[in-house]
Amino acid sequence: MSAVLSACNAGDPGSGRLSDIPYESEPYPLREPDRFVRMEIPADNQLTVAGVALGKQLFFDPLLSADSTVSCSSCHLPGRAFTDGQILSRGVAGHRSLRNSPSLLNVGYQTEGLFWDGRVNDLEELIVHPVQDTNEMAGDWTELTTKLRDHPEYPLLFRKAFGIDTVAAIDQELTVRAIAQYLRTLVSGNSRYDRYKAGEVILTASEDRGRRIFFDIEDGVPTSECGHCHVEPLFSGLEYFNNGLDEVYDPKNFPDAGKGGISGRVGEMGSFRTPSLRNVALTAPYMHDGRFATLEEVMDHYVSGGKYSENVHPNVRRLDFSERDKADLIAFLQTLTESEFLKESN
């Protein structure tokens, strides 16, 4: 009789013991584009099929927020390249985030800090913030852990993903690890432009002229300086710059200090991470504060040379562009959309 009870309890989340449920350690087959620098994945959080599945479920689950109304995916919608189309995102109780929601595609390749201001260095650390940010999910990690432990399904998924023996082992660390695993699978490297690079498609005349403008490849088309900061293959050099959004004569007066607010360095005031332009046609509105509604407005900003402050990056300078030049450049940017990937993610 006791043996029967023991066997029942061993795999029963209700009892707190999970040891009879199989631990699934099958590695996740991450497909990385050849042109990308290999993703650095922490040795203690290698991707597994079960870990990624758990992370995906958590990512889309509003349970993570204080009142179960907001999930990670509320501000990072797959159909919008993991942005949300809002100037500032809507969090719990109608609160608004302080900055525009950045795309999460290729976030696993961001080795030079995360968030617009580079305040954290790895995905595991990043995930802690939005869950507890009062303007976003307003959650509490202790309460969330309790909700996950009491959940009818999550203990089984945590066991499969991490091999934990008891429900009590579910904690913040395993939760962020699972979500980080899922985020590392959000790889976008098979756009129309990538297929062009592989010799599989031909760009239209307008797209190709836009490409040449973007990369300053040759004479006969105007110089855009785009490709210096939005570097292939991620279309971001992963660096932080002041791109001339605000006229500021005293570096202490930036409306948002960006990276300088984290580092305290004068030269970094008003600087933000260069966002990837992959899928940029889907990620409006643009800039850290969502001030530009369209790519045309972004184009007008850069053509103007931006506004004055001493630390504006010198590649942001007045450009001699015609309407045709702008249209061609936007046509090229639209080749960076990977719609098939986005359908899969949905």
Binding site: V37, T111, V231, E232, P233, L234
Partner: peptide, 17 residues
């Protein structure tokens, strides 16, 4: 892409594709 991220030549911003 021939290098791991911590190596000097992995800097994409220093490469002219």
């Amino acid at each position: 892409s021939d290098y791991t991220p911590s190596e000097p030549l992995a800097q994409v911003s220093s490469y002219w594709e």
